[in-house]
Write a protein that binds this DNA or RNA. Structure first.
Length: 284
DNA sequence: ATGGCTATGAGACATAGA
């Protein structure tokens, strides 16, 4: 809301005017333990003021999600917790996300909490935490590839709806050499293996737009720095967290980026938040 | 190649992360 002084009035009259929205800010943040990281998350929410947030690696069972603290900060949430590992959530500022599904179709045996989907502020949001897959090769790598196949299949059905959709989260993939501080060191890693990069490319080929890369072609941008070996101090980073936009949304990109400084905070996650701002959409 | 660090759940260390 914005106060407008009506001209000609004897006194300033406050008129409620719907402020022109600066746009819809959608962010993703692998928090690496939502309870251990709560102070960092709340401070970042206050500073960054995202409208929609996808969280990964909650590392908390369903009942330990800090719903009250987030509500006090102005966010409603849907989440899929899991004890110790994984866990994903979608936050929405000032409105209730409408949960559409949890878990990807294609394997009822898969009990990892790695995907949740909700309708939020007129956009369909798929929040994902793709398996790490190390060591490659092996059963974990196979699981990663199978999970990726299921994601690609579901992504195509989402696109077929024609709705404004975003696939947002920790993809555990560096898409190109530009996304790795030292590509030759990562050739055989599950995050950079050709099969995985090619799967990511297949996703883009369906018609998805990588918001951060599109806004910053040719630029070295990272979203993750290992806790080990002073990776943050050396800027030895990886770009793992991505925001993919359906064709309807890509023409509305205003800006995209990474809140790098958050990685330098006390008790930081090993990931930094990444975000995109979309201009006002007709449907919103 | 290894180990370095950090989280969780447990109440020591095992396991996963990337």
């Amino acid at each position: 809301m914005k106060a407008i002084a009506a001209t000609g009035s004897p006194e300033p009259v406050t008129v409620a005017v719907r402020q022109r929205s600066p746009g819809l800010k959608v962010a993703t943040f692998n928090v690496n333990g939502i309870n251990g990281r709560l102070s960092v998350l709340l401070l970042w929410l206050k500073q960054a003021q995202p409208d929609i947030v996808c969280l990964q690696e909650l590392k908390a069972p369903q009942y330990k999600f800090p719903v009250a603290a987030l509500r006090a900060a102005g966010y409603e949430a849907v989440w899929h917790g899991q004890s110790r590992w994984n866990g994903v959530a979608i936050l929405s500022r000032g409105s209730e996300p409408i949960e559409i599904r949890r878990g990807l179709p294609g394997n009822v045996e898969d009990e990892h909490s790695r995907y949740i989907e909700a309708a939020v502020k007129g956009v369909l949001i798929g929040c994902l935490y793709l398996p790490n897959g190390n060591p490659a090769s092996g059963p974990k790598f196979d699981y990663k590839l199978r999970w990726f196949r299921r994601l690609i299949g579901h992504a195509s059905t989402l696109l077929a709806t024609g709705a404004p959709v975003m696939l947002v989260g920790d993809f555990n993939v560096m898409p190109t050499e530009l996304d790795v501080y030292k590509p030759e060191r990562w050739i055989d890693d599950a995050l950079f293996r050709p099969e995985v990069r090619s799967a990511y490319q297949q996703l883009l080929d369906q018609g998805w737009t990588d918001a951060i890369r599109t806004c910053h072609p040719g630029e070295r941008i990272y979203t993750f720095w290992d806790y080990l070996r002073n990776a943050w101090g050396r800027d030895a980073g990886l770009r793992l967290d991505h925001l993919l936009l359906s064709p309807t949304l890509k023409d509305h990109i205003v800006a995209a980026g990474v809140d790098r400084e958050v990685r330098g905070w006390d008790r930081a996650s090993d990931h930094a938040p990444a975000w995109v701002i979309l201009s006002h959409l007709p449907s919103l």
